[in-house]
Amino acid sequence: MKIAVLGAGHVGPVIARLALAAGYEVGIAGSGDPARIEMIVDFLAPGAKAQRTADAVADADLVVLAIPWHRVPSLEPKTFDGKVVIDSMNHWPPAAAPLGTSEEVAQRLAGARVVKSLNHVAYQDMEPANGRAVGFAGNDPDALDAVAEFLQRIGFDPVPMGALTAGRLLEPGSPLFGVAAHRHEFETFLKEQS
């Protein structure tokens, strides 16, 4: 399984390292020429391949969006058709938007199978994953299975949150955001919300 990580800032290289350690082939794309991020990739995620966004996504079975939120409009929707896409982004500053980021991503990348996850864990707390519970939410059962397998393989304990709209429960302002919660805390919180 090949993983494309879009974003070479704080979060992207950490996810790339976890994926590489789990035996995945990983491509990383920044916002421009891959040559601009080659040194960063070589240093922060040795073994990953710096690529253009279109090439990284085309080669991937699973795509992780770890770009700044304001760059989402620059994504070419057709590039993502049929792809399983993990949205690990947040509104910064937190927005009182009617939709969560993943719902907006799903509208923009209409052909993608979007799953919300990894956005509620600070990059410095991601590694080692050590079985830390992470929520994931989405509408496509096959995409959810693929993401759960990926999360588990890179060291997390994936906790299903429900449909994509439940991804809002993982965003800034939620009691689960930025907290090292255990599976039972996720499950208790979900029961309280229903």
Rank of each mutant, 00 (worst) to 15 (best):
K2L: 01
L6G: 00
L6R: 09
G7K: 05
G7F: 03
G9S: 11
I15C: 05
L20S: 02
I28G: 01
I28E: 10
G30A: 02
S31A: 12
G32Q: 08
I37A: 14
D42T: 11
D42P: 10
F43Q: 10
P46I: 06
A48Q: 09
Q51V: 04
Q51C: 11
R52G: 10
T53D: 13
D55C: 02
A56F: 14
A56H: 08
A58P: 05
V64S: 08
I67K: 04
W69F: 07
V72T: 13
S74D: 15
L75N: 07
F80N: 00
D81R: 13
V84Y: 12
S88R: 02
S88G: 14
P93F: 08
A95Y: 10
A95C: 09
P98M: 12
P98C: 07
G100E: 02
T101Q: 00
S102R: 11
L109V: 01
V115M: 04
K116G: 07
N119Q: 00
V121S: 03
V121D: 11
Q124P: 01
G135I: 11
F136E: 01
F136N: 07
A143K: 02
L144T: 06
A146T: 09
A146I: 01
I154A: 09
D157W: 12
V159F: 12
T165I: 15
T165P: 04
R168F: 08
L169M: 07
E171M: 07
P172K: 03
F177G: 00
G178W: 12
A181D: 01
E187N: 05
L190Y: 05
